[in-house]
């Protein structure tokens, strides 16, 4: 499987940290920066879609621009023994110059055109 390197710069680059207690919504911010001179389409995917609310969960980033994404972990009963195994993936693709519609970009995307980055979730508890 051929893989392109992710063009976007992710901040944080690999871990999304959520601070407990998890009795209320906990938000982690993820910044995506497009350092290239081409427009990029992105999509956020997760292994636990029911546990998170992600805004925006897809979109377009202009050359040199950045997007701030809010990843909201929904309240749940935290078990101290639970280590999050949740993961996120940011999937991106360059927008061809002859395409204006984002849905078409994804529909026509070839696997070798896709770039992705994976992030893992880290649950942090306040010290007891």
């Amino acid at each position: 499987m051929s893989k392109l390197d992710q063009i976007l710069i992710l901040d944080p680059p690999s871990d999304l940290r959520f601070k407990g207690p998890f009795t209320d919504v906990v938000t982690a911010n993820l910044k995506l920066k497009n350092p290239s001179d081409r427009r990029v389409c992105f999509k956020v995917k997760t292994t636990a879609p029911r546990r998170y609310c992600v805004r925006p969960n897809s979109g377009v980033i202009d050359p040199g621009a950045a997007v701030n994404i809010s990843v909201m972990l929904q309240p749940f009963d935290y078990d101290p023994n639970e280590k999050s195994k949740h993961k996120f993936m940011v999937q991106t693709i360059f927008i061809p110059s002859n395409v204006s519609d984002n849905d078409t970009v994804w529909k026509d995307a070839k696997p070798e055109d896709l770039m992705d980055s994976k992030l893992r979730c880290v649950f942090e508890l306040p010290s007891e």
Binding site: V44, K45, T47, R50, C53, V54, M89, D116, K118
Partner: peptide, 14 residues
């Protein structure tokens, strides 16, 4: 390595 099948589109509404 995780297989991509484990990933689903994130939702924007809770």
């Amino acid at each position: 390595a995780l297989s991509e099948d484990e990933f689903h589109d994130a939702v924007s509404e809770s």
